[in-house]
Amino acid sequence: MERVTATQATLDLIEKLKKKHGPLLFHQSGGCCDGSSPMCYPEDEMMIGKSDVYLGEIGGCPFYMNKKQYEYWKHTQLIIDVVEGRGGMFSLEGPEGVRFLTRSKVLPKE
């Protein structure tokens, strides 16, 4: 089972954002300024490091999470959705009047 997946609304928004900004990547925020939400960045503006875990791709874009946060979420599948309203001020979807939202479900035991 995929560790991260996306709704059709999310995939549609990703395509719109890729047309505006080029290649993108996602990083699940662990809190602080923008709470715990999926953040979308131009691919060349986000530095991925050894403390980040690759979860998969949504809409052809890589999706990462911090290793420490992953320890809490490793038993879940992340389902990235989009809802109306303002979200993270650093994420690219903000000016569109919508925000990405992480939903989750527990993965079956392996």
Rank of each mutant, 00 (worst) to 15 (best):
35 G>Q: 05
15 E>W: 10
28 Q>A: 06
12 D>K: 14
48 I>T: 07
38 P>I: 00
76 T>C: 07
1 M>L: 14
108 P>M: 03
60 G>R: 03
104 S>I: 03
62 P>C: 13
65 M>F: 00
37 S>C: 10
73 W>T: 00
20 K>L: 15
72 Y>D: 06
8 Q>K: 09
15 E>N: 14
109 K>D: 02
72 Y>W: 15
33 C>S: 11
104 S>L: 10
5 T>G: 03
58 I>E: 01
9 A>K: 07
44 D>H: 15
23 P>N: 13
107 L>D: 00
32 C>R: 15
95 P>Q: 04
85 G>L: 03
72 Y>K: 11
21 H>Q: 06
27 H>Y: 15
38 P>H: 04
49 G>H: 04
103 R>C: 01
21 H>D: 08
71 E>P: 02
46 M>N: 13
41 Y>T: 10
83 V>E: 03
27 H>R: 15
11 L>Y: 08
92 L>H: 07
37 S>N: 06
73 W>I: 04
76 T>H: 09
105 K>M: 10
31 G>S: 04
28 Q>W: 04
30 G>K: 03
83 V>G: 02
45 E>G: 11
80 I>V: 09
15 E>C: 12
49 G>A: 08
13 L>C: 10
23 P>H: 10
5 T>K: 07
91 S>A: 02
107 L>F: 04
49 G>N: 08
9 A>F: 00
20 K>A: 14
3 R>I: 02
59 G>S: 03
56 G>H: 05
72 Y>E: 11
102 T>K: 05
44 D>I: 13
59 G>F: 09
58 I>M: 03
57 E>S: 12
75 H>V: 09
17 L>Q: 12
102 T>A: 14
47 M>C: 10
39 M>F: 12
74 K>W: 01
95 P>T: 07
101 L>W: 02
42 P>K: 15
46 M>K: 15
16 K>Q: 14
44 D>W: 15
57 E>N: 10
63 F>V: 07
108 P>H: 04
109 K>A: 04
78 L>W: 05
51 S>M: 07
106 V>L: 08
100 F>I: 00
56 G>M: 09
55 L>M: 05
68 K>I: 10
65 M>K: 02
29 S>T: 05
79 I>W: 00
103 R>K: 02
8 Q>T: 05
45 E>R: 14
78 L>R: 03
77 Q>M: 07
36 S>V: 10
104 S>F: 11
54 Y>S: 12
44 D>Y: 15
101 L>Y: 03
75 H>W: 07
39 M>D: 05
5 T>H: 01
80 I>T: 00
64 Y>H: 06
54 Y>I: 09
7 T>G: 02
59 G>C: 05
2 E>M: 08
19 K>V: 10
26 F>W: 12
2 E>F: 08
48 I>P: 05
80 I>F: 00
84 E>Q: 08
94 G>M: 10
102 T>N: 09
73 W>V: 00
102 T>S: 11
18 K>S: 09
3 R>S: 08
78 L>I: 03
62 P>H: 11
42 P>V: 05
21 H>Y: 13
25 L>T: 12
73 W>H: 04
94 G>F: 11
16 K>F: 14
30 G>C: 04
81 D>A: 01
46 M>E: 15
98 V>E: 09
25 L>Y: 12
108 P>C: 01
75 H>G: 13
94 G>Q: 13
66 N>G: 14
20 K>Q: 13
68 K>F: 12
